[in-house]
């Protein structure tokens, strides 16, 4: 479903700040695969997701989504293949617009927008039903401005928006990092439910090793812009934090797994 081939990206080339954030990453995701991505600060996790979503363009290499070469396709055109949830709860929704307006915007992702009404009554009903399944009490508040919601509610809404039209690929970029532990757990479980229900191919970046091990059916660990560890299947199921750290040290040839990672 997703093919990243030898992806390289260099920021600020030719200046003292030149950094190679991705150093030739190749990654193939089969349909329905749920991959968690982990790595320390500056390992390239978010950069990888931003390259797939089109926020950044690769310096060299290729990106294919469902067989389509999107390497040079602008972000807004790629959006039709993608569902995205960001780290910042403010980022995924339009705060000054109503809940139903946000959902209606998401419902038109990948379609041509014209002079028809921005939202119809049937859609309102459908949104109400979908929100009711989330059990957050939002189904009765369709005409509430999104900025009045809590961070957790906003992330749940963004998750619904990302999956309202079934995406070819779901990108979750540390989407629970800004939430309190209890809410984070709830949003993660909700994510897993939807991913399993719709068999979504998913890339989930997290900085939490336990979450990376617990969720998904494949785990990759990035280090200095390269893939250091890639486990799936039975091996992934039997992973523990300790065995993951060991694998990482082996692969990267360094013992300095940051304490942050082990948290």
């Amino acid at each position: 479903m997703l093919k990243v081939e030898n992806a390289r990206i260099v920021f600020h080339p030719g200046t003292v700040n030149e950094t190679e954030a991705l150093r030739g990453i190749s990654l193939h995701l089969a349909p329905g695969e749920f991959v968690t991505v982990i790595g320390g600060n500056g390992a390239g996790k978010s950069t990888l997701l931003n390259c797939v979503s089109g926020a950044y363009f690769l310096t060299s290499g290729k990106i294919l989504i469902d067989g389509q070469d999107v390497t040079n396709v602008p972000e807004f055109k790629r959006a039709k293949y993608l569902g995205r949830v960001f780290q910042d709860p403010m980022m995924g929704t339009a705060g000054n617009m109503w809940i139903e307006e946000n959902l209606a915007l998401a419902f038109r992702r990948g379609q041509k927008r014209g002079l028809k009404w921005g939202i119809t009554n049937e859609e309102r009903e459908m949104f109400r039903e979908q929100l009711a399944q989330f059990d957050l009490g939002l189904e009765g508040r369709l005409s509430t401005k999104v900025k009045l919601l809590s961070g957790g509610q906003r992330q749940a809404l963004t998750l619904l928006m990302a999956t309202l039209v079934k995406p070819k690929l779901l990108l979750l970029d540390e989407h629970t990092a800004a939430l309190d532990p209890k809410t984070a757990k709830k949003v993660l479980e909700l994510s897993e439910q939807i991913i399993e229900r719709d068999h979504l191919t998913t890339l989930m970046v997290t900085h939490n090793m336990r979450d990376a091990i617990k969720y998904g059916n494949r785990l990759i660990m990035l280090h200095n812009g390269e893939i250091a560890v890639d486990v799936s299947g039975e091996e992934k199921k039997n992973l523990t934090v300790e065995s993951l750290i060991e694998k990482f040290s082996e692969a990267s040839g360094s013992d300095e797994v940051s304490d942050k990672l082990a948290l």
Partner: peptide, 28 residues
């Protein structure tokens, strides 16, 4: 009328949160 249409809503979303608008496939 116009700001209630699909294009009108897309303009409002662009002004409100550009990144979100692009993620929803809007040519900001």
């Amino acid at each position: 009328w116009f700001f209630g249409t699909e294009i009108g809503c897309a303009i409002r979303a662009t002004g409100n949160n550009e990144r979100m608008a692009r993620a929803q496939g809007i040519n900001t």
